[in-house]
Amino acid sequence: MSFDVALIVDSIPKMLMGLGLTLQLLILSAVLGLLLATVLLLMRISGKWYLDLPAQAYIYVFRGTPILVQIFIVYYGFPQLGFIRDSFLWPILREPFGCAVVALSLNTGAYVSEILRGGVLGVDRGLHEAGSALGLSAHQRFIYITTPLAVRLAIPAYSNDVVSLMKSTALASTITLLDMMGIARTIVAETYAPYEIFISLAVIYLIMTWFIQKAFGVFERFMSRHERQ
C-alpha cells in the first residue's frame, strides 16, 4: 500500500485523452436536451391537454427511471426492435457514441423542461398585465417579457443540471466508450491502483464542475446587469 506518484503523473495525460469525448458528450447532449426541453415546455404551457399530457407522461417516465437503465435500453435494447434497425436513425444508434448522446439528451431534456417551466411560472403576473396594457400581443409578451426573465430565473437550477449531465457522461464508460472514466477504468484494471487513478480523475471532474459553475455565474450576472446600480 503506497501512493504511487509516478503512476499519477503517467496516467493523467492518458485520462485527459478522453476529455475530448467527455466534452463532446456533454455539449452535444446539453444542446439537444435543451431543444427537447423547449419543445416539452411549450407543450406543457400550451394549455391544450393533448399536448400537455404526453409531455407530462414523458417527463414522469424519464425522471422516474435511472439514467443507466435508459442508456442500456437505447444501447442494448433498441437493436432487438426490427423497425429501429430499418429506420434512418440506425446509423446513429449502431454506435455507442450515438446511443450515449441520445440517452443523455432524452434524460436531460425531461429535467431541463421542468427547470424552464419553473422559470416561466416565476415571472411576475403584473409584468404580463403591463405588457398587454401596452398593447403587446401574446406572442410578443412571450418573447420580450417572459423569455428573458424566465431564462434569468432558471440559470442557477440549469447550471446544476449541466453539472449533473457532466457527471452522467461518466456512465458512457458502461457501454464501451473510452471517455475519461472509461480510460481510468482500463488503467485501474491493468495496474490495480484505484486510489491513485480515481482520485486524480475526481480532481479533473471537480475542476470541470467549478468551471461550469463559474461560467453560468458570469452569464447570470450578465442577464441581471440592469439590476446593478
Partner: peptide
C-alpha cells in the same frame, strides 16, 4: 459537499469499492 456534488456517482462508487478492496486485501 463540494467533492461529492462535483464528481460522478460512478467514480465515487468505484473508488470506494475497489479502494476498500485493495486496502483490505493488503
Amino acid at each position: 459537499t463540494v467533492v461529492f456534488r462535483g464528481t460522478p456517482e460512478l467514480l465515487v462508487l468505484l473508488l470506494i469499492y475497489f479502494g476498500s478492496a485493495v486496502t483490505l486485501t493488503a
